[in-house]
């Protein structure tokens, strides 16, 4: 006697299954999700290759703590400092959220630089991952710019004058400099609108850019796959060519033909190499 699968008996389970099936029927999310999670990555993937995910996790943490800070912060020259003092001294856990946001920025920059160093030293930016590197470079620049714009928001003397100097530097660039300075300052001088402009750039413009570029970066990583460590067991073609040349030279020496016979270049028998 054959049994027919009628699904779970529990009505709650039934309901959930129905909703999931409804969404899946229209979006195909089950299949693509399964593909995304269970796609193969090279077996030798190393602990060094966790830094990109860590940078992304820290961006998420900065977003969450930033959203909480934005609930109390007032981007107005007259009230900004007071609202920071309110967050630090009065709001429950406020000092903690502010501390995490501040230290999170430093740790994120350290992690982003370590991530870039790993990719550089491994040569992981080479074909076919050039554009993954370019999108990553954009993310690095945007992360640095986040630090620059966030620094002003605490609205104390040190931050204010450091930002005056930083914006002067931008404004001193040839041709476009004066325009960039005016855009950053919201006018020719630091004024009442400068702070809210920095606030808007810091919490809307650049986070949007970073989220977009994280999306692009991930697209390339998932499409092209994560690179193998340079010490991976599977030798690259250049390495195999070297070994082939060495073997052939040794063979030639044994046969007493010292270097007088040329052999076909190794890529001629690529097919056999891959099997090896």
């Amino acid at each position: 006697m054959t049994t027919k699968d009628i699904g779970p008996k529990n009505p709650v389970e039934q309901g959930v299954t129905q909703v999931v099936d409804f969404v899946d029927e229209r979006s195909g999310v089950k299949n693509s999700g399964r593909w995304l999670m269970f796609r193969n990555i090279p077996a030798g993937t190393s602990w060094f290759q966790t830094l990109g995910f860590t940078a992304m996790a820290l961006f998420g943490m900065q977003a969450i703590t930033g959203i909480i800070l934005a609930m109390y912060y007032k981007p107005d020259p007259n009230t900004a400092f007071g609202s920071i003092a309110h967050i630090t001294n009065e709001v429950t856990w406020g000092w903690m959220v502010r501390g995490m946001h501040k230290w999170g920025a430093s740790v994120m920059i350290v992690i982003v630089f370590l991530h870039m160093g790993r990719v550089f030293i491994w040569g992981a930016y080479k074909y076919p991952r050039e554009l993954t590197w370019v999108t990553g470079a954009m993310l690095l620049l945007m992360t640095m710019f986040m630090g620059l714009t966030g620094y002003l928001l605490v609205w104390d003397q040190k931050a204010y004058w450091a930002t005056v100097v930083a914006v002067n530097i931008f404004a001193s660039a040839p041709i476009l400099g004066p325009y960039i300075g005016d855009i950053l300052r919201a006018g020719p001088e630091f004024g009442p609108d400068t702070l809210s402009r920095f606030y808007s750039i810091h919490m809307l413009l650049i986070p949007g850019g970073i989220a977009t570029f994280i999306g692009l970066h991930l697209y390339f990583i998932i499409r092209l796959g994560i690179s193998e460590p340079p010490w991976a067991k599977r030798a690259l073609r250049v390495q195999r060519d070297e070994e082939d040349a060495r073997r052939k030279a040794a063979r030639n020496r044994e046969a007493g033909l010292k270097g007088s016979v040329s052999f076909p270049p190794a890529w001629v028998d690529d097919e056999q190499e891959v099997k090896r």
Binding site: R39, N40, I41, P42, A43, E228
Partner: peptide, 11 residues
């Protein structure tokens, strides 16, 4: 790379 992926492990 295709060979490395084929012999690889799931993400």
């Amino acid at each position: 790379y295709a060979a490395a992926k084929k012999d690889g492990k799931p993400f």
